[in-house]
Design a protein around this nucleic acid. Structure first.
Lengths: 143, 143
DNA sequence: ATTTATGCAAACATTTTGCAATAAA
DNA sequence: TTTATTGCAAAATGTTTGCATAAAT
């Protein structure tokens, strides 16, 4: 349903690195840093935040490379790019495109949600728009 | 369900202006320009775009005021603020918080969607998160 | 050997802040 | 008259580009 649907599901850091090669992207040291971080934290971070964390961790990488990499990785469906009020946030692709935004912990949990066909059909009939994809943002509290 | 739920529905420019006063906001000339534009175009625009359009239309307003106003209007639930890859987009509040994003025309259509209670309950059981609100982004084509 | 990726320097775009002048109520 | 609002100037923030160098395949 999604345009950027994953051909092969990415379920691990190794999958992500392999997908880079499949897409003709080289597995550079810096690219690996970014993917390692993203798989390590299992969160959605801004480009700036990713650069800061890697730098603080002593990883040798420039901010330009972080931006360039995240754009390329997102374009190739290897990471996900969300638009939030904090700016663009990048995170793993875990094969699902709806999110639960935890208002207390600030975490974003990936979930897979299938809407009833009747709901979609009714919407299409009402608006005249042919719906090809959807994403749901849930908001809630963990405690 | 929504935290920022409208106490009184805003269905017209007049409603929006009245809501300003209810909230203790003054109806300045510049504030009126912004709301007039938003109700006129019925689209979601960036702060920059709003400033540009008003300037081009000969409206006397500074860019600082546009940013300050949009923030205040959004904080008071008089306009809606969406985060998109183009940056933050502002538009009317039309009492509904799901959107159909038209990939051909680039328009955003407001729709009201009620998810089945079972779906929400199942999600809460699976994730342990108490869900208090949600928004759906549909993607589709008008032609 | 070939081509992608890096990252500095600099530009660019967007948004925010301090604050004195202005205008709405 | 009082207080919110305006908007200039300037800074801060975030992101992008050109391009020579370095590194991956």
């Amino acid at each position: 349903m999604s345009e950027t649907a994953a051909q092969t599901p990415i379920r691990s850091l190794e999958d992500a690195l392999n997908r880079c090669q499949d897409k003709g992207m080289r597995v550079s040291r810096q690219r690996r840093y970014i993917l390692e971080l993203l798989w390590d934290v299992q969160e959605h971070l801004s480009a700036r935040e990713i650069y800061d964390r890697l730098s603080r961790a002593g990883r040798d990488i420039g901010h330009t490379s972080v931006y360039q990499n995240l754009e390329a990785l997102a374009a190739n469906g290897i990471v996900e790019c969300l638009d939030r009020s904090e700016g663009r946030l990048y995170g793993n692709i875990s094969d699902s495109h709806s999110h639960i935004n935890c208002l207390d912990s600030n975490q974003i949990i990936d979930v897979q949600v299938q809407l009833p066909a009747e709901l979609l059909e009714r919407l299409e009939a009402e608006t005249g728009v042919r719906i090809v994809d959807y994403r749901i943002d849930f908001y809630g509290y963990q405690r």
